[in-house]
Design a protein around this nucleic acid. Structure first.
Lengths: 233, 233
DNA sequence: GGGACGTTTCGTCCCCCGCCGAACTGCCAC
DNA sequence: GTGGCAGTTCGGCGGGGGACGAAACGTCCC
């Protein structure tokens, strides 16, 4: 597959909206995506087949449903990078409806970005880890010795060695386009997000990618990382 | 600018070939790119205007020439990532002509990848730095203390702190699609490549992106990093 | 100044691709 | 089985965009 063919898959507004929707890291059905993008089911079906053939999406059939999700972290990173570059080239537009505005502010507060935390929560976690010297960026972004100990203490496991050269980076900085700041992705970001969901520090709001910090989660984040989230915001 | 619009810029074979050609890190004239891609000058001119408007390319006018290059390291990284993903999705084709084959083998030996070293030379340098503990990848890819000292000893300067959060990473692993291995990019990769060119350890072959290791360079690489390049390959 | 050359603008052609509706295939529930 | 729902396949329509050549523009060299 050529660069142009790959880019061509993302060059259509409908297919691009599918991919950004799937950036919440979950599996959607073909019908959900069709309604989300405002196209006929037949149109969505054709688009999905092409995205899957191109290796960007993976499907899972269950009964009469076709569940579809991003193929792997590499595909997610690619789409994130493209979206970040496009956003940087010319900053986006403001929401027009109240419903959209509410959703956007919820997502700006806390959301998933593929499989890690984003929004103000994601940036706050990233900042806290930096401030406490658990990750450092002065010689390439990396987890420190202290960071490894802290993670072990919190019961969060990380592989000791990278899986293989060229594999998923252990920690990766991901540009947050609501905050215009970076948050943590990679294996570490995914582990933190999984832990937060597993232990109910955060929970999903409805079917979108927005998250709510539970009262339990707020306390834990304060104790563990000194994060004080403004509840009004 | 939307994701789809950005991807649309790269979705055309002619524009994509421009971008991959420019991955050698140098500035090409509009006419050179037109001949390279096999299209009329008028066609190339229109494509270039669109790529520049989209922020992927930057231009510099000199007399009756229009020099064009990749806009910045972020644009280069984006194109590299797309090319690597496309190549991974379905491995490429073998060359058909002798001329093409010769060029490919020269580029497989040593070439520039935007502003850093790639090919077997790039991978060898990357491996050597890893083996000697000058960079480490066990907690995120980073330059070690030893590495900083070694660089200072070799007269290669690196900024102490990242320029700004979200800026160019100090060191970045870049997938080498001839070697199917990673080599070093980012600020470190660029500094190494610049040093190698400035001190004539390597020199460019003709107008492509291929490099030749000079006899002086071969000796220096052996002394400094213990790299033994097979001259037959 | 004159001619060559690199580049651009414009007009035109044509193919590709995204969209829909209609009809069909499976799967599930009653 | 029978109806209903999710998804797919196909034909046809329409628009956008990439290609070229011709002509204009600006720069450099003699």
């Amino acid at each position: 597959m050529s660069l142009a063919q790959l880019a061509g898959l993302l060059a259509d507004p409908t297919r691009a909206s599918f991919c950004t929707a799937l950036l919440d890291g979950r599996a959607w059905t073909a019908g959900e995506l069709a309604r989300y993008a405002g196209v006929a089911p037949s149109t969505a079906s054709e688009h999905l087949s092409r995205l899957i053939a191109g290796g960007l999406l993976a499907e899972e059939r269950q009964g009469r449903h076709r569940y579809v999700r991003l193929a792997d972290p590499a595909a997610a990173a690619l789409i994130e990078d493209l979206a970040a570059f496009a956003e940087a080239a010319s900053p986006g537009r403001t929401p027009r409806t109240l419903r959209e505005s509410t959703r956007q502010s919820a997502e700006a507060r806390a959301r998933t970005c593929y499989d890690h935390l984003a929004g103000r929560l994601g940036v706050a976690v990233s900042d806290a880890l930096h401030d406490r010297g658990l990750v450092a960026d002065d010689a390439g972004l990396a987890v420190t010795e202290d960071g490894r100990a802290w993670l072990a203490g919190a019961g969060i496991e990380l592989p000791v060695r990278p899986v293989r050269a060229g594999g998923r980076p252990l920690v990766r900085s991901c540009l947050d386009w609501t905050e215009r700041r970076t948050h943590l992705g990679g294996v570490l970001g995914a582990a933190l997000c999984r832990t937060a969901l597993d232990r109910s520090w955060v929970e999903r709001i409805g079917s979108g990618r927005a998250l709510r910090v539970t009262s339990d989660g707020g306390r834990t984040l304060r104790e563990l990382l000194g994060i004080d989230l403004d509840p009004a915001h």
